[in-house]
């Protein structure tokens, strides 16, 4: 996983509530055994016409947002399915940070595992950031994870919350399986106390 420290980038405004993971990456694109290559299919039904041509009114089809690395979205972003293909597709497109009033739990969690920082901020602030984003390439946002600040183009700093453990993993680009295995002795000890009546799935 790539580290996330500070990002200064073009932000795309996407003011729609309840963007579900089927919208982010429709199910027909899940038939892959890889994590990469999904960027061209991100938001496919919102982004392309039936003949495969671009829908001109979709924000990520417009300049400079084709190079956006930040999304400023609506409420309950990422609801629906647990498919990690959603953050994989966003990452493959180039998105490293999503700012929204709220996120669905599983998507929120999946994002951190892939070096994407989801930031929940009140709707009034998201509305301001969407206005900044609407100004295009001359109005980049900066996201400073170490200081937990979003910096607007006018210099205003907006603090945000992030779970300390997740921050630690993102800053270091750390694989959390390795971190968990530091608790191997505790896992062994837990397993030795599992009640004897607990059935095993085997011998099927």
């Amino acid at each position: 996983m790539d580290k996330f420290t500070t990002l200064t980038a073009i932000a795309a405004p996407l003011n729609i509530d309840n963007i579900d993971t089927d919208k982010i990456i429709p199910a027909r694109f899940l038939k892959t055994i890889k994590r990469t290559g999904l960027g061209k299919s991100v938001f496919a039904d919102m982004r392309y016409n039936a003949d495969g041509s671009d829908k001109a009114d979709f924000v990520l089809n417009q300049e400079p947002y084709r190079k956006a690395q930040i999304l400023v979205a609506g409420d309950n972003f990422g609801c629906g399915s647990s498919r990690e293909h959603a953050p994989w597709a966003l990452l493959d497109f180039g998105i490293r940070c999503i700012i929204a009033p709220s996120f669905a739990d599983i998507f929120f969690n999946n994002s951190f595992k892939n070096g994407i920082l989801p930031i929940a901020l009140p709707e009034e602030i998201c509305a301001k950031l969407r206005e900044d984003a609407a100004m295009g390439g001359n109005a980049r946002l900066t996201v400073d994870l170490e200081r937990q600040m979003v910096v607007r183009p006018n210099g205003e700093e907006i603090p945000f919350q992030v779970d300390p453990f997740r921050k630690h993993c993102l800053l270091g680009g750390l694989d959390d399986i390795g971190l968990t295995l530091e608790h191997a002795a505790a896992i062994d000890s837990y397993e030795s106390k599992i009640p004897a009546w607990t059935p095993k799935i085997q011998g099927a």
């Binding site: 994590r35 399915s81 647990s82 498919r83 990690e84 953050p87 599983i106 969690n109 999946n110 595992k113 892939n114 959390d176 399986i177 968990t180 295995l181 896992i187």
Partner: peptide, 13 residues
């Protein structure tokens, strides 16, 4: 429900 990174995490740990 969990994502694929967590599937790997559960398989491993």
């Amino acid at each position: 429900g969990i994502g694929t990174s967590e599937v790997e995490h559960v398989l491993a740990t």
